[in-house]
Design a protein around this nucleic acid. Structure first.
Length: 502
RNA sequence: GGCCUGUUCGUCUAGGGGUUAGGACAGCAGGUUUUCAACCUGCCAACAGGAGUUCGAUUCUCCUACAGGCUACCA
C-alpha cells in the first residue's frame, strides 16, 4: 500500500521504572498530537523486560498520569486492541519465535560467554588503551559464532546458559532519514554483535522494540533523541526479519538548568508532582509543546485543538532544551487567568477541601453548599493572583481558618509612624455603620471617609485594616474580602487586633 | 577511546547570503492601583571561536572548542 495512505499508527512505550517523567510526557504528547492530527491510532505499550528495575505498581502511576493529561490511547494494556498483548512481559513467546528464526537463518547465534568474563575483557581493553590505542572500541569477537555445531549442541545439552546475539552484517552501510535530524549514515562495522535475548530469556530493548513496532504495525516512531544512536541497530533487525521500516522522529532531550539530563535533583520531574503542585494539564502540555517546537515567531499559547491543527513533526528543532520552571509557571498562570470561573471554582474547591482536610477541619461555619458559594465569590478575587492552584491556599486561607496573629502582624506598626490604634477605632465605628450585607462599595466609601477625616490616604487606612482582618500585608482586594468575610467576622477581627496592640 | 548529533539574548525560540537579528519568560525602570497580582509602556540582552566561498556570511563549507547521546545480558 502507498505509505502516504496508510493509517498512521504511533506509540508511546514507557518502561515502568518509576513515574511519568516530564520528558516522557512530552514524547507521549507529541505521539498523541501526531495521531490526532493524522486521525491515526495511538498505542500504548509497556516495556517491562527489565526485571531488576521493573516495579509493577508504577504502571498504574504512569497510566494515571497519561489519563490526567488527557492523552487517551486507542490500544493498550487496559483497553486491548488487535495487536496485543501490550506488555512486553506477555510477549516473550513472540520474541523467542523470531529469535529462533534468526538463528536458523544464521542471522543470530547463541553466545555461551559469561557476562562477567566479557566485562573483564572489556575493562582490560580499556586499560591498555591509555595510550593512542587502536582507535577501536571493544567489540565481541564472535567466538561463539565460530563454535562447531557439535559443541553448540553439547553446550545446550549440558544446560550451559546462553544469550542470543545478533549477527551484525559486515561492511553494511545503514542509512536512514530522521524527520528531525536529517540523513544519518553509519557503517555497521561500528556495531558489535549485540545481544537480543538475555540469558534469562528476556529480550533486550533494541530487539523487542523492533519486533513489537513491526508487529503492531507502527508507522512512525517518535521518541527521545537518546535512541537516535540505537536506530541503526534496530534497522538491522528490521532488515533481517524482513519487516517494513517505519519513519523515525527523534525529539531533542529536555535538560535541567545546568545542562544535564533532567533528573531528580532538578526538582519536580514527575507529572504527579506537577498535579500535586497545582498545575493545569493545558499549561503543562502547552509548555511542553514549546520545548523544541514553535509555530511562528510570536505565538506562545495554544489550545489543544490549535496544537493538533498547527503541530508539525518536521518543524521540531534539534537542540536540546533546558527546562524553565519559571516559564511553566507563567503559562500556568495564564491559563488560570483565562479560565472560566465555573471551572476554576471546581478546581479551587478540591484544593481547599484538601487543605481543610489536612488540618482536620471542614469549613467551620458553612455547610458544603455554603462552601461552594463562598468559593464562587472568592474565585474572581484570586484568579489573577495565582500561578498555581496550590498557591491559592496561601492567599485564601484566612477565609476559612481562625487568625492567629503572627509576631510580624503584632509588631507591624511598632516602629512605624502610625497611630494604628486610633485609626482602627475609627475604622471600627465606620464599618459598624454599614448594613449587615456588608457590601464592598459601602465599606470602601466609609473607609475613604475615615481617611479623609484623619487626613490620611486610603492606602494607610487599608494597610491597617488589612493587617487586622487578614494577618498579612498582602490580601485579595480588601473591600470584597471583607464582604465575603461578613460584617461580624470582620469586626471581630478588628476588635481582636485592637486588643493585641493596645 | 570510537561512533552519532548539536551550538541565535540568562532561558524557550523566530529568522535566514544584504534585517535596527523578531517574539515570549525572567530581570530592570516607569504607569495604573487599597496591598499583592494582573494590565500597559519602556529598557537590558544573542548569532561559540577560527579559516574558506562570496561584492557581502549570523545564514553555505571545513576545522577547533564546548555540550549531549550511544558504545550494557538498562530502556
Amino acid at each position: 500500500m502507498d505509505k502516504k495512505n496508510k493509517e498512521v499508527r504511533v506509540r508511546f512505550a514507557p518502561s515502568p521504572t518509576g513515574y511519568l517523567h516530564i520528558g516522557s510526557a512530552r514524547t507521549a504528547f507529541f505521539n498523541w498530537l501526531y495521531a490526532k492530527k493524522k486521525a491515526g491510532q495511538f498505542i500504548l505499550r509497556i516495556e517491562d523486560t527489565d526485571i531488576a528495575r521493573h516495579q509493577e505498581e508504577t504502571i498504574d502511576i504512569i497510566l494515571n498520569s497519561l489519563k490526567w493529561l488527557g492523552l487517551d490511547w486507542n490500544e493498550g494494556p487496559e483497553s486491548g486492541g488487535g495487536y496485543g498483548p501490550y506488555r512486553q512481559s506477555l510477549r516473550l513467546e513472540i520474541y523467542k519465535k523470531y529469535a529462533d528464526k534468526l538463528i536458523e537463518e544464521k542471522k543470530a547465534y547463541r553466545c555461551f560467554c559469561s557476562p562477567e568474563s566479557l566485562k573483564a575483557e572489556r575493562e582490560n581493553k580499556k586499560d591498555r588503551e591509555v595510550g593512542p590505542g587502536d582507535g577501536k572500541a571493544f567489540k565481541y569477537d564472535r567466538r561463539c559464532f565460530k563454535l562447531s555445531q557439535k559443541s553448540i549442541e553439547a553446550n545446550i545439552e549440558s544446560g550451559k546458559p546462553f544469550a542470543i546475539r545478533f549477527m551484525v552484517p559486515e561492511n553494511e552501510v545503514i542509512n536512514f532519514r530522521d524527520t528531525v535530524y536529517g540523513n544519518i549514515t553509519i557503517n555497521a562495522s561500528n556495531i558489535e554483535d549485540f545481544i537480543i535475548i538475555r540469558t534469562n530469556g528476556l529480550p533486550t530493548y533494541n530487539y523487542s522494540v523492533v519486533v513489537d513496532d513491526a508487529l503492531m504495525k507502527i508507522t512512525h516512531v517518535i521518541r527521545g533523541e537518546d535512541h537516535l544512536s540505537n536506530t541503526p541497530k534496530q534497522i538491522l533487525i528490521y532488515r533481517a526479519l524482513g519487516f517494513d521500516i517505519p519513519d523515525f522522529t527523534h525529539l531533542p532531550m529536555i535538560l535541567g538548568q545546568d545542562g544535564q539530563k533532567l533528573s531528580k535533583r532538578h526538582g519536580s520531574i514527575s507529572i504527579e508532582k506537577y498535579i500535586e503542585d497545582g498545575f493545569l494539564k493545558e499549561a503543562i502540555l502547552n509548555y511542553l509543546a514549546l520545548l523544541g517546537w514553535a509555530y511562528d515567531e510570536k505565538t506562545t499559547t495554544f489550545s489543544i485543538d490549535e496544537l493538533i491543527e498547527k503541530f508539525e513533526l518536521d518543524s521540531i528543532n534539534k537542540k536540546p532544551a533546558k527546562f524553565d520552571y519559571d516559564k511553566l509557571l507563567w503559562v500556568n498562570g495564564y491559563y488560570i487567568r483565562n479560565m472560566e470561573n465555573s471551572v476554576l471554582e471546581k478546581l479551587l474547591e478540591t484544593q481547599i477541601k484538601k487543605y481543610l482536610a489536612s488540618r482536620e477541619m471542614s469549613d467551620p461555619e458553612s455547610s458544603p453548599g455554603n462552601l461552594q458559594q463562598k468559593i464562587a465569590r472568592i474565585t474572581p478575587l484570586v484568579k489573577e493572583r495565582i500561578k498555581t492552584l496550590k498557591e491559592s491556599i496561601n492567599l485564601v486561607s484566612p477565609f476559612f481558618i481562625e487568625t492567629v496573629y503572627s509576631d510580624q502582624s503584632k509588631n507591624y506598626f511598632k516602629n512605624k509612624n502610625i497611630d494604628a490604634l486610633k485609626i482602627l477605632n475609627s475604622i471600627y465605628s465606620a464599618l459598624d455603620e454599614v448594613d449587615d450585607r456588608f457590601p464592598a462599595k459601602e465599606t470602601e466609601g466609609n473607609l475613604r471617609l475615615v481617611a479623609k477625616n484623619l487626613n490620611l490616604n486610603l492606602r494607610k487606612v487599608a494597610e491597617v485594616t488589612r493587617i487586622a482582618i487578614w494577618n498579612s500585608p498582602v490580601s485579595p482586594p480588601l473591600f470584597e474580602t471583607m464582604e465575603i468575610l461578613g460584617k461580624e467576622l470582620t469586626l471581630r477581627r478588628i476588635k481582636d487586633y485592637i486588643k493585641i496592640i493596645s
